[in-house]
Nucleic acid binder design. Sequence first.
DNA 1: GGGGGAAGGACCA
DNA 2: TTCCTGGTCCTTCCCCC
Length: 791
Amino acid sequence: IENIKKWGTSSSSGEGFLSRMALNDNKAGMEGLNRDKINKIIMESSKGSRFYENELKKEQQVNQRIERMMLQKAHITEQQLSKAQAQVEKMTSDLERGRDLSRVIVHVDMDAFYAAVETRDCPDLMDKPMAVGSMSMLSTSNYHARKFGVRAAMPGFIAKKLCPNLVIVPINFDKYRAVSAEVREVFADYDPHFLPMSLDEAYLDISDHLEQRRGWPEALRTHRLHTNNTGTARVEDHGGLQETVELEGLSPVLFENSPSSSPCLQDAAGGEVEVFGTCAEEAVREMRFRIEQKTSLTASAGIAPNMMLAKVCSDKNKPNGQYRLPSNRQAVIDFIQDLPVRKVGIGKVTEKMLGALGITSCSHLGQEMALLALLFSETSWHHFLHISMGLGSTHIERDGERKSMSTERTFGEMGALEEQFSLCRELCQDLAQDLQKEALKGKTVTLKLKNVNFEVKTRAWTLPCAVATTEELFAVAKDLLKTEIDNVSPQPLRLRLMGVRVSNFASADDKKPLQKSIVGFLHKKQTDSSRTQTHTPKNTNTSAETDISMSALTASDKMTHEPSAHASTSSCCSTEPESGTDSLTCPVCFREVNTTELTVFNRHVDQCLSGVTMGQNNHTDTDELLSRCMLDSVGLQLDSSAGDHTESTTGLLLYETSTANISLSTVGLNPVCLNTCPNGDVSIHRANTLKVSSQSDPRVRVCLLSPGGPRPMTTPKPESRDHRGPALTCPVCQETQDTNDLTLFNRHVDLCLNQEVLHELGGLASVDRTTHTAPPAAHKGPCFRDVLFTE
DNA sequence: GGGGGAAGGACCA
DNA sequence: TTCCTGGTCCTTCCCCC
């Protein structure tokens, strides 16, 4: 209990000290600061803000976790403890046997990198406290600023309160990238497989370099420092390490104890030279010397038998210093004993949890390992054990395959729907570009939202096939966003951050091209069939419904198919029909149509589409309550004891029920996808079960594509014009049409599509598209799909 | 009841 | 006036066997 009090907030009402917001002075150049005074300023600047309130909430959650942990601890028996102790001991001896001290790993870290680059380029900043970033957030600070408690990841406005004379320089990534590239050239001479962690930090395994270096003559280890009258320095390497760089100003620019400040020898020509030795320390000193000569910036380094220790060592003599931990077990154990847990990759939450158990240093960690094995997950306590023994990775491996890719943006409060959807599209566009650069496609699309209260939510949807284009991403992201908007409706969703992520990347097998839009499809068809038949573009476009491109359909329209069993015939993952194939895949029902005749195929698609349209016609509300579900399979069995259903001519099955649940059990059925019902009336549970429940409306309607062929259908009742939405937006030209007469609107879309098809088919006709290039009018009116559904 | 996948949240660098 | 990105782990929920 004492420990909880010590590590928790002093009260739950938000008064008092909020430890998670306190200064983290675990950084070089921040020793011996007046923490209390600094924390007081931080708290006073933050108190009452939404950010602070959210931090308070998170702090309380952590405190609850700690309370649960302490409760659990209180119930641990002696027997359990001794059993855990035996387990820990066995594991320890196993790990000890595998301890590898043979490698020489170096962690190099540029000193206050961004700040140092800015200071180099603007020497006036040299003696001033400065930081790089903005009033909202700082990326780094120089050592003068650190004396005031100003550090990276601190908002600029708080930093200004800590240090009113602080100069904040805007961030310039291009510049840092260029300098980083220069530094990396030096790294590569010592380990061509070095592992960059960020622009200013890298791990190197110099074991092989040292092996070679032992045989090097002195000339290869001699570096000359030239200075001319203008203060320009030139560095020359003798031997294999080539380098000739002009410098503006002589190092060291920022820190004392430069690696080049050791006594230099005079060479025959009267220039100053420095000879470096063959041991690890000398090799690293040489590397730092060369970095400094090349960039006028200093680096610090740590040398140790593994990555974890090297990282700690690089911090030991920062700035502009290095530290070597000898490669013997006792030295490692001695070194690790007194290290605070926060220094070795344990974050603030885990630090606090360990603190509640009285564990603050690595030696405590080792002593309490049995207890930790009982209170933490296996992964966690194994990690703790490695740390307490001073173990870490001994081979530098570049990260394996990427697991996800994302983009996100923070902005001022945003509540307008149009803005939100427009931003969502922008993010999808940016992400699509990034995905394209790495030729990646992913199945899971995640939308991340942070509201003005700093509450973060992520919402994900996994598709049966991998996607990558803007339209594909947006189709999913916008549905996820819409659901969140509807959830808080009629209140607006007040956002401060939005992000889109793609993960679950496709394996090589899945990276086949997506099925093209009908337009692209027809284009391909034209090429394929050119050997046997000719057709005019006119033939390809008998009606708007037929030729609506895939991009006009929603995400759920596209994700209605199983990637495995039916991939070749009925999936958006399916490849283009192979040359010579005699069937085409319908983009609506995803069945294979045994024809190459476009007229026949178009008729089929028309039928499918009008089926979809008519299937919705019974619906008297907007599509808010409506979910459409397509089942691409055979053997559907409807398992329900309540409700009535009607079937349409084109395989549509309408289901109406006032009961809470419908279960669709199927035989070998593919995953079902449905258009998410915004108010949560309809949800999908696993591949074969659709659950329908309605709290807001007892008459939920579900529309399914049934497996059978065309069936007799009841004539749908035309919807009253009063229910029609406002002006309609053309899905092709994106322009809002000044009509709500569907016939007129359809005629317009037909016209647009005709022009689009002609354009796609390679400019077979001269079409003036200038009138169709208006910027997307986001959400001015219902999209074409909505029109199809409601009308 | 256990295995396993998906989703969501949290932590960490 | 409190970042961005990406990886990992943990928990919960649910389906399936």
